[in-house]
Design a protein around this nucleic acid. Structure first.
Lengths: 317, 317
DNA sequence: CACCGCTCATAAGACCAGCTTATGTCCTCA
DNA sequence: TGAGGACATAAGCTGGTCTTATGAGCGGTG
């Protein structure tokens, strides 16, 4: 940092780069090794973990060893009567669990994208829900009904309605202020838009809530006009949101906000991780209603039954 | 969920198994492939992404192709003037980003465990902080000060104090009700213990907050006596917490709660992900003070300077 | 109109990581 | 003291991923 003992500039952390991609795969063990480590942690034995994963004991031994070499840390204490994690190993295992859980969500989602034809449950969902909530629901569904093959189509509200009405989907999920006509719905949750900035921005330390006027007067990093997020914000402010820049994906908006380009307005679903890690800070807002309902939808009269009902029951508050 | 068409036991989702390990690595592309996909998404070109990752264009082409084969979904639209993500590709990329972000946190943490000797900043932290918060801070620090080598030791409050006082660490982090003597501290955040249940538990739908007496009267899934979490709970309830089972790690408690064994009391830091994914539900609690401070600590009089101050400034609210 | 530059695809060979089988060592318990 | 469990070591095989070399489509430009 500023040099050892020198002072720290206030916004010393510039982090504008988008995480300078690369080389991660060479420094992080692959998923198989991480799964193996979790199994060792759970079973207390290399050989047992090997059996569980369907490989031989020497394979497990060698893999754990090369993971230790790669990380430069001893992870397990071996003894002739089993293996236990070292302190560092316990920490590494907890961090590894996050990766594996993200991979499980990925897998659940990816299978739904693949299983087009023979699916017993065809879901159509808006992007935000498909991106942030569905993988978790699919994991839960898989845990309870391992044999339910799900297919997923992601689009906007209109597409979701269309697929439901043309019997290309059994259950839909939309977020927004209105329910497409021809559909029944039930509210399954709420999404709040929140104002976020990088921790370096003056608003990050603000305690007094922002007023609507103040928000409307400040140039913001926004999704493009027409996006669901933007619609809610414009409605709340009376169509007055002033863009600093307009970007076409939630990801791009997040990246710009993290980089310190300015305040952004985003779904709280989209920034949970960033808030937890302090890469972004939520700014309190007064008297502006930035909530929107998350709804499950289906063709009027056709209440969900079977797998659709199973999934629905996982999502209700 | 209730059954497909036949009846389902109310807690039809039995998911007691700890995610039935295995085979994930065969269904999820490896980290290198995911990084490549993110680069393609960002740059709009296979060749460009290849250059960024330091591989050749055919390698990138082949790798993306085999990822598409593995997932059974077309991810990118190739054209003679570049490549764009398909709709499914955009969704997959967003899911992939989660995995990569978890891997980045892993990497940041793992490097701190490795860089023992020549570190410019030696950190000692309690387990909860080391597990959930430090990786994010280290990432932020790396973004702002790429050349700061950090070493990390994780232990309990007493260990942290010991290392600071014997000059084996420059900066410490502890959670708990008291500050070890000989140390100065500053509060950097708060951790709330929360009551959680699986979504199937009656409390999950409860709106009226739990009273202290009610909580004390109910058998709970708890950490072992003596753990930091347990101390706070016992203090809040007046030493009355009734264990349903006692487990020796946060992870085990979480797993039991997710499996529906009963209500558990856990740090909100530990269950953020589970709440977001609805694997657990928070139960409102009245008039029980389950907060504890998160503090940065250092030897009395030795205010953090240099890298320690840099890190500290990332963590303050 | 032909050329240059960009894109991606294909093919052939090198290399390496991880797997398996077979065996050895250490410890514990009966 | 011998059986059994757990981990380590060694040798050979295999598959995936890399590289180099080359082909082919599209688009702007002199």
């Amino acid at each position: 940092m500023s040099g050892g003992s020198g002072g720290t500039g206030d916004s010393g952390v510039e982090g504008l780069r988008p995480t300078v991609g690369g080389m991660l795969a060479h420094r992080v063990p692959d998923l198989g090794a991480l799964e193996l480590l979790l199994a060792v942690a759970r079973l207390g034995s290399l050989g047992g973990a090997a059996r569980e994963l369907g490989i031989t004991q020497p394979a497990a031994s060698s893999r754990i060893r090369s993971m230790e070499r790669q990380l430069g840390v001893a992870l397990v204490d071996r003894s002739p009567r089993g293996s236990r994690l070292t302190d560092a190993g316990a920490l590494v295992t907890d961090w590894a669990r996050r990766i594996v859980e993200a991979a499980e969500a990925f897998d659940a989602g990816a299978q739904a994208l693949r299983d087009r034809r023979d699916s017993r449950l065809r879901v159509a969902a808006s992007m935000t829900i498909a991106e942030y909530l569905l993988p978790g629901w699919l994991l839960a569904l898989r845990a309870g009904r391992p044999d339910t093959a799900v297919s997923l189509h992601a689009g906007n509200s209109a597409t979701v309605a269309e697929r439901l009405l043309s019997d290309e989907a059994d259950l839909g999920f939309v977020e927004g202020l209105t329910v497409p006509s021809g559909l029944d719905s039930v509210v399954i949750g709420h999404d709040h838009l929140i104002v976020v900035t990088s921790p370096a921005h003056p608003w990050a330390r603000r305690r007094r809530p922002l007023e609507a006027g103040e928000l409307a007067a400040t140039p913001l990093i926004l999704r493009e006009k027409g996006s669901g997020t933007r619609q809610v914000l414009d409605a709340a402010l009376g169509g007055l949101a002033r863009p600093l820049i307009e970007l076409s994906s939630t990801t791009a908006v997040k990246a710009a906000a993290v980089g310190g380009a300015g305040p952004a307005v985003l779904s709280e679903l989209a920034v949970g991780e960033e808030l937890a890690m302090r890469r972004l800070v939520a700014v309190p807002v007064a008297d502006v209603s930035l909530a929107r309902d998350l709804r499950a939808v289906w063709p009027t009269g056709h209440r969900p039954v079977g797998p659709a009902r199973d999934l629905l029951s996982l999502t209700r508050v």
